[in-house]
Design a protein around this nucleic acid. Structure first.
Lengths: 189, 189
DNA sequence: GTGATTTTGTGATAATTGTCAAATGATTTC
DNA sequence: GAAATCATTTGACAATTATCACAAAATCAC
């Protein structure tokens, strides 16, 4: 994939950006084609990249007593990043590909530098972080106010791809219930 | 409180701002001295302000089957805002003063407008939202990975003021357990 | 394609937590 | 300062969910 193609992708994903900003941003972006189970972000390590999923999917998980507990999933056209990594701190979650995926990789530090002088990119970063915060608030609301059954329904209502791509074990840990309880929830309906 | 004093407060709370930005920002800020139980943000209503607590405290809650369920608390030197309100959407939580409080009130729309042309303020907004996202991620982590007992300890470790100012009923709903269960957790230690 | 491995489903039991009811303790109001 | 209101604690019981053990189904590797 060449620079022009990368610019086209950036343009279509971030339509608020002006032409110059697209070109500058593309200098710190690169295309990746990675195999299933590749770790994009690893626990306890610092990471200097964030990603846009062009095709494929990822899961993020914490490790609790040597068990994986999923914290989120991401699919096509979504941004993959953690606030910790974005702030230059060691991540406390691991992010791994659920399938062979095509990604656009961005250099976090370079783009944060750009944002210091480029209003257009500062605004873009604002939008991305706000979107992330909206996602977090919604998830928090679900965790605090909905039963595991309601949360399961909310998850499946988003689309069928989550059930196709994510194992029920991972979904159970994401919902905060045991595999067995999820199995019984599914049986009901 | 006059404009110069407001400028001094803004300067000390947001030390990255340059002199001009402090002055511009102060045009959209005003000082408030409000009584306990005043609602800063009300459920189902749109709000066009956000706040900095100079002295005092607030709680935020959702209403679930006519019961209050607390989602967060804020104290001195913290920002009071919700992403929903910030995006111009009706809030789904209510924010209310826990005691007589002194606040600095900012006009959300005016400051978002400023951020479109002022890099300094755009950067400030970035920082505020990132801080909010860090807070949300931490809370999500606690809700998903820690027992109610561990979460209670984490809450009290932040400082004694939370126990002085917030009722155990509110803390129980915040932790996601019943009043009775919290009472038994407290008895253990 | 077949055996091996992983994932998912089911039953029985134990542990945790919620709910209801009532008592005690603290605070507010007049 | 006493009555009234509100907050917290405690006990008994019911409901929910986790855990363990194992069976069935699906998927993977060669």
């Amino acid at each position: 994939m060449n620079k022009t193609e990368i610019q086209e992708i950036i343009k279509s994903h971030f339509p608020t950006l002006n032409r110059d900003s697209v070109i500058i941003l593309s200098k710190y972006a690169s295309f990746l084609n990675l195999k299933k189970r590749t770790e994009l972000i690893s626990e306890r390590k610092r990471h200097h990249k964030f990603y846009l999923i062009l095709k494929g999917s990822v899961k993020a998980y914490y490790t609790k007593e040597s068990k994986e507990v999923c914290s989120w999933f991401a699919f096509e056209n979504e941004i993959v990043a953690t606030i910790k990594a974005f702030n230059g701190l060691p991540s406390n979650e691991t992010v791994v590909l659920l399938e062979d995926s095509k990604l656009l990789q961005f250099k976090t530090e370079s783009i944060k530098e750009l944002a210091k002088t480029n209003l257009d990119i500062s605004h873009l970063m604002n939008c991305i972080i706000i979107e992330h915060a909206v996602f977090l608030e919604e998830k928090l609301y679900q965790l605090q106010f909905m039963s595991s059954e309601e949360r399961y329904k909310a998850l499946t209502n988003v689309g069928p791809e989550i059930l196709q791509k994510v194992s029920l074990t991972d979904i159970a840990s994401y919902l905060g219930v045991s595999r067995e309880t999820l199995s019984r929830i599914r049986k009901k309906k």
